[in-house]
Design a protein around this nucleic acid. Sequence first.
DNA 1: GTGCCTGTTACCTC
DNA 2: AGAGGTAACAGGCA
Length: 272
Amino acid sequence: MPEIVEVETIKNDLIRSNKILGHKIVNSTILSKSIVDKSAFKDFHKIKNKTIKRIDRIGKYLIFELDDLFMIVHLKMTGHIFLKDKNYELQKHDHLVINLDNGKELVYNDTRKFGKFYVKKDLSFLDVLGVDVLSKEFKFQDFYEILKTKRKKIKTLLMDQRLVAGLGNIYVDEVLFHAKIHPLKQALSLTCLEAKKLYLSIIAVIKKALKYRGTSLGKNKSNYSSIYEDFGFNQNHLLVHGKDKCPKCRRKVVKLKINGRTSYFCRHCQIA
DNA sequence: GTGCCTGTTACCTC
DNA sequence: AGAGGTAACAGGCA
C-alpha cells in the first residue's frame, strides 16, 4: 500500500498536527508481537520517557527520532498510523499504541500485519536503500548511471528499493505511462533522452500524487489513509494503473504480471 | 465455501 | 547478476 507519497503525507500530517514533535512518550503497548521486528523486541521499552525530536522519511520508511535512538516503521501493504485521543477505544487490527504526554495516542493499525517497527541506535540499516526520489540527492546523472549499468527490465529496476527508493507498483505504472516507456524495456537500452524523460516523469507523478494526498484504492479500511483516517484522492487522477482504456489513444490497456506484480500499460503509447 | 487477488519486501533457489 | 517463487497475513470478490 503506502508508497513514498503516502508515507510523506503521513509524515507531514504528523508534523503539522503540532501534537507530536517535542512531546514525550509516556507509555506504549504492543498488542501483536509480530509487528515489532525481532531485533527490536528487547529494546522497544526504551522508547518510554523519550521525547520525539524529529519525524522523517527515507524511501517508504517513517522515522521518529527520539532523544538518543530511532523508532522506524515500515507500513508494508496495509499499515496505518492514526492520531487519537486518550479515551480512544481499540479497533480491530490495532497492534500498537504509543501514549504521549499530551494525552494523544499514536495507534498502529494493520489488517495484514506485514508492517514492522524497529528501534535502532542509528539509521545505518537503511544504507542499503538507493537514493530517495523526493530528496535533493536524486540527480539525473546518478539515475542515468544506474539505468546504464543494470540489466533489468525498467519496471523491475524502478521497483528495486536498493537502486531507487520510494516507488511502488502503482506509481511505477504511472511514471512509465507519463514517460511513454514500455515497462518491459531493458533499462540499459534507454537513450539519454528517454532517461531524462523518465527522471522528470518520476518527479512529476510524485508531485501530483502528493498534491492529492496519496492513492487510496478500494473501499475498505485496509486502504491507505492518513493519520485522521482520511483517504487520499489520487485514485481519481490515475491515468493507466487499473484502467481499461488508455486516456490518450483509447486503446485497451494491457494488464500483465511483471515480476509477480500486476502491471498496466498502453502498448501503443509506451514504446518498447 | 473455494480459489484467486492485493499497495511490500525478505529470503530462497536456479 | 538477475529472475522467479514463496512467505508473512487478512479480507474482498467472483
